[in-house]
Design a binder for these strands. Structure first.
Lengths: 197, 197
DNA sequence: CGTTCCTGTAAGCAACTACTTGCGCACTTC
DNA sequence: GAAGTGCGCAAGTAGTTGCTTACAGGAACG
């Protein structure tokens, strides 16, 4: 790993746990194991470094994909939502900090490409197909339903450790409950009668 | 309003939009319209002031209450969730900042008394009664269902302005959709057949 | 009138911030 | 062997931070 990459990853790490003001150039340089002057030689300013570091954090998403054509909603949604919520939990600190500082530093975080927004797009599409294929009620609004499920997963991932009272169930059990309630809500019976084909 | 109250409210305001590090004593004093020295005379330190200011922000909750005995779930939940989400939107900046800085300053924010946790407790109770009275399916888990609905409302209140793509519907329409999906999910038919009594 | 309480003003403290300049050392490339 | 490149080290800039000390004015109350 080059010094440059070391600095970028350290910047993201320190920013996630200390915020913009707390991510001082000294602290970032220390975390990267390089001299503070080297930081300025590579990026010129703290702002440039953080901008680049956070931009790099947004792309990689090895999350599970929803199938083009739905067939077993329960299994498909469980796997997808599970990988999605796991991903969010891993980025929890960064996401929380970005949210908290969005009003003050809007440019650092690009909501359009964020995990939740992309997930919601994929889910809306999936739900629309589900409806088209008659696997769900016709009356519900896919985008509102997507917002409901994504919001539930997001809040769980962000709030479970802070508010244990609110999240009494184990993570996996909670996820199953969410999906079951959700599928019932959109009129896709969680218990398939006989194998579809 | 006494100088002391002026300082407390200014502290909460400045903290909400600038965070702990950004809420400098000079800035708070300026916002309160008093001298910076007066701040120290009253509270001794920045930390004491912020702690007191944020503690005061947590109590007041004039939110609508859920009825002791459920009778019209759709109407009752709509009114309750509406007032709850409105309240959260009003405190959006403060909540976001608290969340973002919770890891760094845990003492400033007491999750047990926070709006969402109290709301979840009330909702869990309401749902349990709903089930007991046979107004909903017997198989769902009230606490998981409460986490689902609260999470949905929380994410909507926090994310709607940041991620307009995710929240395509108007706030009120979205809320109706959420509640309808939710009631279907727990097996409480959103369309009551004939007036209950 | 005198005392006490609350507030403002002036000045300053040490510590930390982002960022700069200048020098030297080790390595690679020609 | 010369030239460049990438990095660390020492020192220092001006500005901001939380917080302090010393002094003065004005209002309330005895």
């Amino acid at each position: 790993m080059t010094v440059r990459d070391e600095l970028l990853s350290a910047a993201a790490r320190v920013y996630a746990e200390a915020g913009y003001r707390g991510a001082t150039t000294r602290r970032i340089a220390l975390a990267a194991g390089v001299n503070e002057i080297t930081l300025f030689r590579h990026f010129g300013s703290k702002d440039t470094l953080l901008r680049e570091a956070l931009a790099r954090c947004q792309d990689p998403h090895s999350a599970e994909l929803l199938p083009e054509t739905p067939s077993h909603p329960m299994a498909e949604l469980l796997a997808w939502a599970g990988s999605h919520i796991t991903d969010m939990r891993a980025r929890q600190a960064l996401i929380r900090t970005c949210m908290g500082e969005f009003a003050e530093h809007p440019g650092l975080f690009v909501p359009e490409n964020s995990g939740p927004v992309r997930a919601a797009r994929a889910l809306t599409q999936y739900l629309t197909r589900l409806r088209q294929r008659g696997l769900a009620r016709a009356e519900f609004d896919p985008s509102a339903a997507a917002a409901l499920l994504i919001g539930t997963l997001f809040a769980d991932a962000m709030g479970r450790d802070i508010m244990p009272d609110l999240y009494a169930n184990q993570p996996e059990k909670a996820l199953k409950e969410y999906i079951a309630l959700f599928l019932r809500g959109i009129g896709a019976d969680p218990k398939p009668r006989g194998a579809a084909r």
